[in-house]
Nucleic acid binder design. Structure first.
Lengths: 236, 236
DNA sequence: ACCCGCCTCGCCATTATTGGGGAGTGTAAA
DNA sequence: TTTACACTCCCCAATAATGGCGAGGCGGGT
């Protein structure tokens, strides 16, 4: 695992997006594949990327808003485990046209993508791709899947570090009853049902909801539940 | 990586929850630690677990609803990377009491937990813990972190496989307008404000909210927003 | 050509939620 | 001991949300 350690150290020392970019290039050269790409959507919905695709392809991709139909994105969004591009659903006509165009722009015909999810809906993809036969690619994936996963996680750890600089909001603490109230509401109970479930009067429940609203700085109940969920102080 | 391969194969062959249970026991024996635990919350909010904790402790944990205050759960829910229990916030008095009690029930004083997130808000934790000094534990983590992560992912892959057999709820796909509507509501906008922000009539907005409610199988707006957030299809 | 899903708008009546007042208990910290 | 906070209950009136009934236009796929 010596080579792996080298790369994880490289990534742990990364300070900027450019360092991540450089890391993708080194990985590409090491694995002798066409491309290595890491890209992610943060909790604010902004997109970032580091990779070895040509800027022409990146521009084209953004311009045509391929994100909306790219089967790789789609497939990974529904799965937990890494996917070989061959396993994806390329039956739709636009999907096949997209693949054809990607290959024209130098993207490999074979690919392997690892999806990752962080807190607050953060979502990231780490991709290796190349132009080769199915057999050669299968062997590559078989041999390197576990290493690639570790590297992918180092990338994502770094990406989340970049974000964290802003993120240190103290979590408001809700009382047990307030937590229960918010949890029932998040489960879809009406106030009457939640009050019933907690065996208290609806008025009392209201007091909890209002207290939680104020503590969470929320405009209304829906907002309060959304904040409680995003902050991870309740789980449904 | 021979030992690793052995365990990943063991997991890939697992057919039932009992097989996962057996795998935790074998891992515990192999790593010579006090406990190995894997547990997860599926997209329906149901909880499952496999691990080597005593049933006394599991019962106690459930009975006292420690899930609501366990700093490990809390900490992992906000992080992407694995956490050493020492890094967590144990300053609250109930948290310290909880730890003391856990140790009485045979849980180690040291622990390392890997959080994982799957599609549709699935969330899982893989934990190794033991009773030992800080130095010994640091060395253990240092030496095995990457292997543990791969094993953790094999567990989660399997858990998601189990789900797929029952849980054939494809993630409901909301239209762009429906997504916008839900996002504004999650941000605390009232219907009137959201309609204004989207420059459409409040009635039209209502149609989107109702459509989203139905697609998400939600009882009311708050529920719909909660589900959309949990499923990760909107982010605030 | 047709259907289906998406986007847009309207009215009516009912029900749910919220904001403003209250008041009393118990526990736990300052 | 005073202060603070969590927990419990109540009323009234205003506002917001929901359920059900419509309508038409646009665009993609079979």
């Amino acid at each position: 695992m010596e080579v792996l350690d080298e790369f994880t150290e490289l990534l742990q020392d990364a300070k900027t997006l450019e360092d991540l970019q450089a890391a993708t290039e080194q990985l590409r050269d090491h694995y002798k594949v066409a491309h290595i790409v890491y890209h992610w959507v943060n909790s604010a919905g902004e997109r970032f990327g580091a990779g070895t695709y040509s800027s022409d392809w990146v521009d084209r991709y953004l311009e045509k808003d391929y994100l909306r139909m790219d089967p790789v994105i789609f497939g990974c969004f529904q799965r937990f485990h890494p996917v070989d591009w061959k396993q994806l659903d390329w039956s739709a006509k636009p999907a096949r046209a997209f693949l054809r165009e990607a290959i024209e722009y130098g993207v490999g015909n074979q690919g392997y993508t690892i999806p990752m999810r962080g807190p607050n809906g953060q979502f990231a993809l780490f991709t290796a791709n190349d132009t080769c036969s199915d057999e050669v690619w299968s062997a590559f994936v078989e041999n390197n899947a576990q290493y690639l996963m570790i590297i992918a996680h180092e990338f994502n750890k770094k990406a989340l570090d970049f974000e964290q600089t802003v993120d240190v909001l103290p979590r408001p603490s809700l009382s047990p009853r307030e937590l229960s109230a918010m949890t029932f509401l998040a489960k879809g109970f009406s106030r009457a049902q939640a009050a019933d479930a907690l065996k208290i009067s609806e008025h009392t429940l209201r007091v909890y909801i209002e207290a939680a609203r104020h503590k969470l700085g929320a405009m209304n109940t829906t907002h309060a539940v959304a904040r409680a969920l995003s902050a991870g102080i309740i789980v449904v």
